[in-house]
Structure formats: structure tokens, C-alpha cells
Design a protein around this nucleic acid. Structure first.
Length: 806
DNA sequence: AACCGATGACTTTTT
DNA sequence: GTCATCGGTT
């Protein structure tokens, strides 16, 4: 066993290695739980290693066992740095390690997200980079607001400089460790901005960064950038952490950006005891700066890297694994691997084509209801995965109609809600009065007669004198603040209010102070008075926040920790996101989420919906090969979430941005080896010519469908259970009926239909044809339905079966 | 300054 | 369909 030259802690690590040699044979039942590849990856501890972990191959198992193994060997937990991508992943891993080695050890591990770990370190070392340790962390909406403000200040057109886009550009710069100065000096970037008609971005970036610093605040990206600056400029601090973190593990390495990669590299640069785990095939966060090259080229960072490949998939059936493999093979940039499954062969993936997004919703809801009964599954065995959050609505509707309970992820997280952000803004200002965003948020909330005009005056005075807004209102006279005496009074009242809180912050814990703030600020009063449903829910949320603070304080008190102030609560909370706050209601519900948020999860039955060109792959990513390959990986991630079955749907027309648009099935569908796909025989992929006709009429029909659905909601739900269209797997499914009526000129059914026929319509149930007439070139039937009443059906598009004659 | 209603623009993913 | 902004009114 070769040991790298070690720095200060080498004495310890030799002990560690010695124990390794002597005790390995009998002591470690840990290793018995692993297959050969996993075990090899766990056992290799004295050099850099790269673990390529295919989907479902037991990646977390390797990580947790590896950490447990290091601990069993005697490495103290606080010498181990384990970085994850989400707080949730860190928590789960921690609890799994606790099961292996005990709560106490697990708790002292340095385990968390890049952002939370390095925020912790930055607070400790804040002095060295000119910040105060109580700095605020701006979330993306804070950043967005600030960018918008700056654009306004600079008198730029916010149509030309869209705040979101500008912030994205700044964010990318930061992730690549490009400071404002470097940005302005980089001719390539400047030329790019010029071409994009946004030549002022460099200036916005500069001001943005200055404003953040003036507010003693950092955005998400700063946490990584300043960590790098800290390490670059303070060798002694870098050394300190290098020595502390004797072993470094990184999960989801394919999703790291350059700033993160460099942090890892610097920390591991001397001892090289670093293990990164990931799957290049699941790299899906490049839009956020993640760089797949970090994992592809890890070997060039540490040339002696040992590569382990976990290739056995324990999650999915062979069909699913093989289908996913055949898809991902189309990517050019990847690490060769051979993922296989020894589970049952399983069912083929089913591809279902529907006429519209609306119908897609129905089909999926129906299929879930049917599968649940047939296979005795729980609702929680099902997940509907989509590319964009906007797609969720239609499934919510269709599931609701069928009384299928669902849980939807995404959307506004708890801490993003207005009322919560407002309350938190008070906390932020108390802890860090320089926090400009917080100041602006609450200066007139609840309404206290300080409007935009006044804030504008304060703001320009602040810019003029290079002071924070807070300092201006603390002594307005010093800065010639030109406001009338009434306004002056009101400003003073606000200032005094916050000062009172700041005083109390010395003695009160977070919960006590929070109650005080709610009471004295008038928030509680206002919330109490608002009896509208929205108002009630706002009050509830605020109450919820109060509960969370209470819990925070009491659990910390129980554990004998002193850090129970508002600062401590804020620093814990500012990096939490929606996924971390959900109460683990392991309810019996269907899961709805984006493919992105499904990463790392698994379900027995997965529906990947909306597989259409310009949606999946998204139109925004298609221009570049890299973008397209990422979309393919995203699809790969979606498929590999499934244990037993995977159903893919696409709609040939879809309501998008306020209008119905036509759609073609995703190119990715053709890329899957047909051997693993099951598709209705008459539902072959469409060709360009039929599409045009279908799309035009599809639009018309779609509009009608939506009108009808509005008027006949209850009727549909009554009928749907008995509808013969959704009978057993072998008989005609909804889809097949569709295809015959839509992709072909005219179905047999439609041609032969005559007066007096009894039909079964997908939506309206049974009815009798009372007459048939011409409508332009098309035939139209007037049908008297049993429960839905009289309807006109354009036979070209109607979805029905003839079931008899009168 | 607050409220209201109308209008217009935009929607990929999120630590 | 949503959000955000604008302009008008009170």
C-alpha cells in the first residue's frame, strides 16, 4: 500500500493505514453487503478515485459504506469532508451512516452541500475577505431584484437587458471564477455581449458585486467564488482546511461547476485522498454552470486516479435498462460503461401517442387507475415526470377528475413565499442592517406611508455617499435627505422599531424575537385581520414559520447548543430549498415532478410525458450538440427512475404560451432500440405530411375539446369508469381509437356511421346518432347522449366506437 | 400612496 | 395561463 507524502497529519494517517491492514479480514461486515465492484471502490482509500456509478447501481451505498469504512478504520469523523448536491441527499446519507456507525460519529462528519459547507467556512473566515460573519445569503429572487434595480439605476431598457438573463450571465461568470475585472478585460466575452446587444453587462456585473458587498451579502455563486478567493489569497487558511479534511468525498461529481471543481482540487492537492462519485450519463445541470468535463477529465487532474465502475443496475428491469442504454449510446461524450440488470426482463416500455395534451392527461390518469387495480399497486408507486413545471397543471386536472390523490413538487417553496420572505426580511435586517434587499422589502411593509418616492430618495443618497440605506435613515440630516417632516417621522419610527429588535437580539433567542417582531411590526395584526382565504393561508404559513423557529430553538437547546439566535436560524435557513422543507408525508399519492427533481429517486411505475420536439428536447437547447446531449441524458435519467414499468407519452398538439401549437414526437423516441418498446401497431411515428393536416385540425378540435371539458366536467368523471375504451390491455386503448380516427383520412367507424347507430364516445359515453349532415367537406353527426345531452361531432375527429343499432 | 384593472410578455431545468 | 408593469382612479 503506497502512501502519498503527507502534510501535518501524516502521523495519524499511518495509523489509519496500519489498522487497515490488520483488521480487514474479519472485522468488517460492512464489506459483505457489497458486490465486488462496490467493495473495491470502498476499499481503495489512499489515492484519488473516480467511481462511475451507473443509474441504480448502488452509488449511495458505496458512499455511505465508504465513509463508515473510513470511520471504522479509525479516521475521526471531523477529518472527513463529504459534499453532496442537495441538503436532502446529505441528510439521508448522514442517517444511513448513523445506522452503520452510530449517531454520534455521523453527526460530526463534515457533510453537506458545497454551498452550506463553504458558507460555514466563509462565516468563520469572513474577516479575511472583507465580510462580516453575519453576511446575508441572497437567494435567486433577491439577486434578480438587485439586478433589476441596477438596470433601472443605469437607465437601461429592461427589455433589452432582461434581469433574468443578465443574472444568468453574471452567474455563469462567477461559476467560472471570472471576477468583474476579469470580465471587463476579457475581449471574447465583451464581444459576445456586444453581439447580443448587451454591452453594459460588465458594468452591471461590477455594480451588482459592489452592491452585494456593500450590503454585506453574498449570492449563491459568491459562496463558491469567495471560497476560491479565500483559498487563493490565504495560503495559511487553505493549509488549515487541507489538513483538516484528510479524506474528501464528492457525490454527483458530474454536476459540479468549475468553481466547485477547483475547491476540491485545492483541498486535495497535497494528500490526493479524494473520491468522487458520479455518472456522466446523468449530468443535467449545465444550465447552472455544471461542467461535465470535470468528471470526464478527472483523471487529468489527478493522473494516478483509480477508476471504478459500478455497472450492475439493481433498480430496473432488463427492458428498462436496455432501452435506456440504447438511448444514451447516441451521445458522443461519455465514459464507456456497460450497465446491465439481472432483474426480471419485465415489460417493454410503452409509447402512447395522444391527440392533445389534454388527452394525454386523461390517458395517464386512466392508466394509473387501471394499473393500480390490476397490480394492486399503491398510488405512491407512480410518478409522472415532465420536462417543464408548466406541464403539471393538465395532469393535476385529470387526476383530480378521477379522484386520484397526487403530490406535486416544484413551484413555490415555503421560503420563497411572499409572506415568509417578508418576515424573514425583518430577521435579515436585524441581523445585518446593511442588507439592502431586506430593507427595501419591509421599509413599507406593513404599510407605514413610506412610498417609492421616499425610498428613491434614500437610495440615491446612499449611492451618493457610498453608504447603506440603513445608515442614511439612521441620521437623515447628515445626508441632506429631502423629505417632509411627516415622512421623516415615519422613517424615524421604522428605524427605532428595527433598533429595538437589534437590541433585543442580544438577549432573546430566535423564537422569542420572532414573536416580538411579528407583534411589534404589525404583521401579526395585519394577518389577523385578513379573513380572505388567501389571507388565512398566509397567516397559516407565518404560523408555520414560527413553529419551525420554535423547533429549531428547542432541538438545539435539547442538544445543549448555545447557538439559538436569529443569526443561527437565518444561516441555517437561507440555504434550504423546497425539497428540504417538505414534511415527509409518506402519503398514498402519485408523484408529479420535473425530471430534474426526480434525479436520485425511483418509482415502480414511471410516466415520462410530453415527449415532443421543442419540449423534450427543449427548443432552447437544440441549437448546440452539447445541449442536445444533455437533453438526452435528461431523458435517460427519466427512464432510469423506473423499477418495473416505464410509459412514455406525447401529444400531437399542445397548449403552449397561450395558444395551441402542433407537435411532433421527440427524436429521442426513435433512438431507443425498438426491441424494448411497445407501441400500438397503427401508431407508428408520424411523418411530416400527415402532421400538417393533423395539426391544423388538431387545433380546431382541441379548442372544442377544451370548451366541452369546461361544460361537461362532471359528466366525464361519471362516465370514465365504465368507458369501454380503457378496458383491458389487449382491447382497444384510448390511443388506438385516436390514431385510427386522426392519422388516417377517415376511420371505418366514421365512414360507416349512420342515423340510428348507438355509439360509445370517449368523453360523453353512450349516445344515439339522431342525424348526420355535411359541414363543409366533412360529415357531422348530431348525437343524443344519455348523460351528456345533445352534441355535434365532427366525424373526422370524433373519438368513438359504434356499439350497436337502435 | 394605495388600489384597481388592463395590457403585454413570457415560460427549461434550481443549489 | 402567469407574472409584472403601467396608467388611471380614489
Amino acid at each position: 500500500m503506497i502512501i502519498k507524502p503527507l502534510s501535518v497529519e501524516s502521523g495519524f494517517f499511518c495509523t489509519f493505514v496500519y489498522m487497515h491492514k490488520t483488521e480487514i479480514n474479519n472485522e468488517f461486515s460492512l464489506l459483505d453487503q457489497l458486490n465486488r465492484a462496490q467493495r473495491a471502490a470502498v476499499e481503495f482509500c489512499d489515492g484519488p478515485s473516480l467511481v462511475i456509478a451507473g443509474a441504480g447501481s448502488g452509488k449511495t451505498r458505496v458512499l455511505t459504506h465508504k465513509i463508515a469504512y473510513l470511520l471504522e478504520l479509525g479516521l475521526p469523523p471531523y477529518y472527513i469532508l463529504a459534499l453532496t448536491f442537495t441538503n436532502k441527499a446529505a441528510r439521508e446519507m448522514k442517517s444511513r451512516i448513523a445506522e452503520l456507525v452510530g449517531e454520534k460519529k455521523a453527526r460530526s462528519l463534515w457533510m453537506g452541500t458545497f454551498h452550506s459547507i463553504f458558507a460555514r467556512i466563509l462565516r468563520k473566515e469572513a474577516d479575511s475577505i472583507g465580510f462580516q460573519s453575519n453576511f446575508t445569503i441572497f437567494d435567486s429572487s433577491d439577486s434578480h431584484n438587485l439586478v433589476k434595480l441596477i438596470i433601472k439605476d443605469m437607465n437601461l431598457d429592461d427589455k433589452q437587458y432582461r434581469p433574468g438573463h443578465v443574472h444568468g450571465q453574471i452567474s455563469r461568470a462567477k461559476n467560472s471564477l471570472i471576477t468583474p475585472t476579469m470580465y471587463a478585460a476579457n475581449t471574447e466575452i465583451i464581444q459576445y455581449d456586444n453581439r447580443a446587444r448587451q454591452p453594459q453587462i460588465f458594468e452591471i456585473y461590477k455594480r451588482y458585486q459592489n452592491r452585494l458587498r456593500a450590503a454585506n451579502s453574498m449570492d449563491f455563486d459568491d459562496l463558491l467564488m469567495y471560497t476560491n478567493i479565500l483559498f487563493r489569497d490565504h495560503k495559511e487558511i487553505l493549509d488549515k482546511y487541507r489538513n483538516q479534511f484528510q479524506y474528501i468525498l464528492v457525490d454527483e461529481y458530474q454536476d459540479t461547476n468549475f468553481a466547485q471543481h477547483l475547491i476540491v482540487k485545492q483541498l486535495a492537492d497535497e494528500h490526493h485522498r479524494v473520491c468522487v462519485v458520479g455518472d456522466d450519463a446523468q449530468s443535467i445541470y449545465s444550465f447552472r454552470g455544471a461542467n461535465i468535463d470535470n468528471i470526464l477529465n478527472f483523471k487529468s487532474t489527478f493522473p494516478e486516479t483509480k477508476v471504478f465502475k459500478l455497472e450492475q443496475n439493481y433498480r430496473s428491469t432488463q427492458n428498462i435498462v436496455n432501452a435506456a442504454n440504447s438511448l444514451i449510446k447516441k451521445n458522443t461524450e461519455q465514459i464507456a460503461k456497460d450497465v446491465f440488470s439481472e432483474n426480471e426482463v419485465g415489460e417493454k416500455m410503452e409509447v402512447i401517442s395522444t391527440f392533445s395534451d389534454f388527452e394525454e392527461g386523461l390517458v395517464v390518469a386512466n392508466k394509473i387507475a387501471r394499473m393500480r387495480l390490476e397490480n394492486h399497486s399503491a398510488y405512491s408507486d407512480f410518478a409522472i415526470l415532465y420536462r417543464t413545471n408548466a406541464q403539471s397543471r393538465i395532469f393535476e386536472d385529470s387526476l383530480r377528475k378521477k379522484n386520484i390523490p397526487y403530490r406535486i413538487y416544484g413551484g413555490k417553496s415555503f421560503y420563497q413565499r411572499k409572506e415568509i420572505k417578508d418576515v424573514i426580511a425583518y430577521f435579515r435586517l436585524i441581523v445585518n442592517p446593511s442588507d439592502e434587499e431586506a430593507f427595501r422589502r419591509i421599509i413599507n411593509y406593513p404599510a407605514r406611508g413610506i412610498g417609492d418616492v421616499t425610498v428613491g430618495k434614500v437610495s440615491s443618497a446612499a449611492t451618493l455617499h457610498q453608504k447603506s440605506l440603513w445608515e442614511i435613515i439612521s441620521t437623515p440630516i447628515d445626508y441632506n435627505l429631502n423629505v417632509n417632516s411627516g415622512t421623516q417621522k415615519r422613517l424615524k419610527a421604522f428605524y427605532d422599531l428595527i433598533c429595538e429588535f437589534i437590541d433585543k437580539n442580544e438577549s432573546l433567542n430566535a423564537f422569542e424575537l420572532a414573536q416580538e417582531v411579528l407583534k411589534k411590526s404589525g404583521i401579526a395584526h395585519e394577518a389577523y385581520q385578513d379573513l380572505t382565504p388567501e389571507g388565512m393561508s398566509r397567516s397559516q404559513n407565518i404560523q408555520e414559520l414560527l413553529n419551525a423557529i420554535n423547533e429549531f430553538v428547542s432541538t438545539r437547546q435539547e442538544q445543549g447548543e448555545e447557538e439559538i439566535g436569529l443569526v443561527d436560524f437565518l444561516s441555517e435557513v437561507s440555504l434550504l430549498t423546497d425539497q428540504d422543507t417538505d414534511k415527509e408525508e409518506e402519503a398514498e399519492k402519485v408523484t408529479l415532478m420535473t425530471v430534474h427533481s426526480a434525479k436520485g429517486l425511483e418509482f415502480n411505475n414511471v410516466f415520462v410525458v410530453g415527449m415532443e420536439e421543442d419540449l423534450f428536447p427543449s427548443s432552447m437547447t437544440k441549437s448546440e450538440i452539447r445541449g442536445l446531449e444533455e437533453e438526452r441524458r435528461l431523458f435517460y435519467v427519466a427512464i432510469t427512475r423506473a423499477r418495473k414499468t416505464c410509459t412514455i407519452t406525447y401529444a400531437r398538439s399542445r397548449f403552449k404560451n397561450g395558444q395551441t401549437t402542433s407537435a411532433v414526437e421527440s427524436r429521442f423516441l426513435r433512438e431507443i432500440d425498438p426491441a424494448y418498446i411497445y407501441m400500438e401497431s397503427n401508431s407508428s411515428f408520424s411523418t411530416a405530411t400527415t402532421d400538417k393536416a393533423v395539426d391544423f385540425w388538431g387545433t380546431m378540435r382541441e379548442q372544442r375539446l377544451q370548451r366541452e371539458s369546461r361544460t361537461d366536467k362532471n359528466i366525464y368523471s361519471e362516465r370514465s369508469d365504465r368507458s369501454s375504451f380503457k378496458a383491458g390491455p389487449s382491447t382497444g386503448r384510448l390511443v388506438s381509437v385516436h390514431n385510427s380516427s386522426s392519422s388516417m383520412p377517415l376511420s371505418k367507424e366514421a365512414k360507416e356511421l349512420e342515423e340510428g347507430d348507438i355509439i360509445e364516445h370517449e368523453r360523453f359515453g353512450q349516445g344515439e346518432v339522431t342525424s348526420i349532415e355535411m359541414s363543409g367537406n366533412d360529415r357531422r353527426a348530431i348525437v343524443e347522449f344519455e348523460s351528456a345531452g345533445r352534441k355535434q361531432l365532427l366525424l373526422k375527429f370524433a373519438k368513438f366506437k359504434i356499439i350497436g343499432k337502435k
